[in-house]
Amino acid sequence: MHGRACIVFALCLPPTQPGAFANPQVIGQLQAGVWTSVGGPGTSTREYPLTELGRQRYESFRLDQDPSLQCIPPGMPRGFSPRSPMDFAFHGNTLTIRYETMDVVRIIAMDGDPPPPYAPHTPNGRSVGHWDGDTLVIDTTHLSAGEVNRNGIPKSERMTIRETYDVEERDGAMVVLIRMTLTDPENFTEPATQTEMFEYRPDWELLPFECNVTEY
């Protein structure tokens, strides 16, 4: 009897239930086209509370070790470089996010199970997404060690990333606010957060990057 009531009143599921409220309108907005970074008040707050080990790693990083200088995509969270245009495509239970810079492609398993512990650690890690109301939430684990940014803020294999995406209208333009929380017990004393704002550009399309290694 209880099961029948749940079928009839399916909308009474709590908003944190994965997939419960995948709003087609929001999906349509995200898939509308290319989004590009814009500045603005309250965006790009980046402070990294480094542990002693994190500080040592940061100070020992040489700027010319930046993998992007060799056209090697540095992976998340740098995969979503604030300067890189990107787009979204939902297909069934898969979300694909493409970033123009370095031709990076991320695959997000919507409502997927967490990856098994033995899954390999990779630059972009393993990402699982779900909807919390109209907010797209992406959790990423299994990252390989590297750098959070080109200045050498370190990331370890224990880093996890939570991203939330909210589509809003601001000053007549459609924007998506992306909030990231980086948790890394090896390198950060507490989670580090940052917020980026991207604007919808209906007249743009993603262009191939075709990176060239530069010798200095």
Partner: peptide, 8 residues
């Protein structure tokens, strides 16, 4: 404040 060419 920064740029991809910082090392150079």
């Amino acid at each position: 404040a920064h740029h991809s060419s910082v090392p150079w």
